[in-house]
Nucleic acid binder design. Sequence first.
DNA 1: GTGGTCTAGACCACG
DNA 2: GTGGTCTAGACCACC
Lengths: 137, 137, 137, 137
Amino acid sequence: MFFRIEPDSGTSIFEQIVDQVIFRVASGSLPAGGRIPSVRDLAQRITVHPNTVAKAYQELERKGIVVTRRGLGMDITAEAPELCRRLREERVRKRLRAALQEAIGSSLPPEEVRRMVEEELSGLNGEPIARLPTSAE
Amino acid sequence: MFFRIEPDSGTSIFEQIVDQVIFRVASGSLPAGGRIPSVRDLAQRITVHPNTVAKAYQELERKGIVVTRRGLGMDITAEAPELCRRLREERVRKRLRAALQEAIGSSLPPEEVRRMVEEELSGLNGEPIARLPTSAE
Amino acid sequence: MFFRIEPDSGTSIFEQIVDQVIFRVASGSLPAGGRIPSVRDLAQRITVHPNTVAKAYQELERKGIVVTRRGLGMDITAEAPELCRRLREERVRKRLRAALQEAIGSSLPPEEVRRMVEEELSGLNGEPIARLPTSAE
Amino acid sequence: MFFRIEPDSGTSIFEQIVDQVIFRVASGSLPAGGRIPSVRDLAQRITVHPNTVAKAYQELERKGIVVTRRGLGMDITAEAPELCRRLREERVRKRLRAALQEAIGSSLPPEEVRRMVEEELSGLNGEPIARLPTSAE
DNA sequence: GTGGTCTAGACCACG
DNA sequence: GTGGTCTAGACCACC
């Protein structure tokens, strides 16, 4: 339902958290000015250690996506939406390019590559990403 | 036979070596019965630690792609070509799927994802592919 | 009496309040025997949580700068002016020393450090101070 | 002798490590292309937990001052010296400015402030900063 | 309640 | 040997 962490997905847990927040801000599901869930709250919901969430949140702050309100929590900055749309585009494009580059480099015939892309694309249902729980919930 | 090793590409060096051997066997550029370069030789050519090459070779042997001819070197097995074509398909498909899954999961509109795929594919192919004009253009 | 609170200045809000009261008492702008604003009043004026103001006031009381007149408010003690002049000197000197120590410890040439001090002092004073021309100019 | 950590200096341990590396690179005491001490090595020398050193090193990598050579260690980048000189200047100036601003804002007479600066400056011996131990030692 | 830091110790992949 | 990640639990300052 909310926030999907896959422990063995190659990307580390804290990075998955970072990505999902970025994607949600980019999509508008987390609006600028809003507050993200507290470290302890999110940690409990996705059953990871609070330190891991904290590390992700620090990375988000470093990127300028959230700011710490001392004693209160962390808020999404005004610049975050545009920033996150840009980051999302970069990240997705970079990984797509790497995968396609590998596919081409593998000497698979290009038509074959394209066929695989089509298969995968049609197989994937564009199910909307889950909402990040808000502290109000 | 030459290898392109990119130290900062996310995939480890030893895995890049494994992949490239698999891809070359699959494409026929390394024929069954042939001998692959010695650990030291390859290590020197791609300026990598011999241990790293050795680890890759172990992995290849474990997969049944090469066999050790004691005192002589390592030969590509008779079953390797078919095996490698299968492995190549698996590997490429798995990474493509992961990248596309992420792209879809990021809430980027599917047309946008498809557009990015087309852009990257055409850029990589060298052969331009007609892409759909978007409303933004 | 008005306060300048800068939420992201490294020093905590409650400490900024403490400092400003000390500085004002030291300068005579808050005279002995006078009454400081109520917790709620000040909190509202500087848009800060009342708890934060209360904590600052506790600290001021602990230091003997103010005393609680139950039901009335808090008054500046007779000893406060002298006490605050001393505290002000300590505090300012301590922070100056720390900053200068770091500057020296950074291996910046001492002349460079002095030059930076002059630049900053003149910029802050408003009254330009003749600075040494450097070879770079 | 090497690397001085002061646990109660207001700045966190990991940040002290970051600063000292920056200062040393800026001063040339740690040359570009060189390798910094391993996480475990430095941790042992300054008797802090390896995680703390690791956190500092990650920050340095993020800033582009060092790069990780997988399995080998971390090297100082070619751009680091210039970068660190800039960072050092920024950091020192920022802290000097803050201290001076506070001094001025405290209503101390400007001559008094200047006198304090002179006292502190003359009192501080510009003892050269310690060397960072290299892995060769 | 909030986040930030530190210690501790484990496990992993990599070279 | 190297760094990277994670869990665990403690302590702190702040609001």
